[in-house]
Amino acid sequence: MVYFKYGKAFHDLRIQHGFSLSAFEELGIAKSTLSNFENGKSMLSFDRLDFAIQKMNVSPLDYSLMINNGEQDSYTAIFNEIGQAYYRRDIKQLQEIYQENRNGSHEQKLVAYSTKGLYQHLHSEEIDELEDYLKGVRFWGLFELSILANIGDKLNDTLIDYILEDFYYNKAYYENDLYYRVLIYRFLYKVILHYIDNGNQNKAKEVLDISQSFFMPGDVMSRVIINYAESFYTYFYIDEKKGKNQLLETLKFLKKNRS
Rank of each mutant, 00 (worst) to 15 (best):
D128F: 13
E107R: 09
Q108E: 03
V137C: 04
I192N: 05
L142Y: 01
L159D: 09
D219Y: 03
S211Q: 00
S222M: 00
F4T: 04
R258D: 10
F253D: 15
R258S: 11
L134G: 04
V2P: 11
N257D: 00
D239R: 02
Q201F: 12
R48I: 10
M216L: 07
A149E: 10
Q93P: 03
F214W: 06
E38S: 00
S74W: 14
E206T: 14
L208H: 15
N103G: 09
I127R: 02
P60D: 08
E26A: 11
F253S: 15
L251D: 15
G136P: 05
E129H: 08
S114D: 09
D128E: 13
L155Q: 03
D219N: 03
I15S: 00
Q54F: 07
L130H: 03
M66H: 14
D90R: 08
L34D: 04
L49G: 09
L208M: 15
E100K: 11
W140Y: 07
G141K: 01
I151P: 06
E175I: 14
R138P: 07
R48L: 14
V220H: 00
K31R: 13
L61S: 06
E100A: 12
S114Y: 10
K154T: 05
K92L: 02
W140E: 01
I184Y: 05
Q201Y: 12
G199D: 04
E249K: 15
D153T: 04
A172S: 14
V58E: 01
Q212N: 08
I15R: 03
V220D: 05
Y173L: 15
N200Q: 12
I82D: 02
Y189A: 12
Y169E: 11
S22E: 03
L49T: 05
K5E: 01
S259N: 00
K241P: 01
I97F: 06
K41Q: 04
D157L: 02
H194Q: 12
I196Q: 08
H106F: 07
L27G: 00
K154I: 04
Y75S: 10
S74M: 13
F232Y: 15
S259T: 05
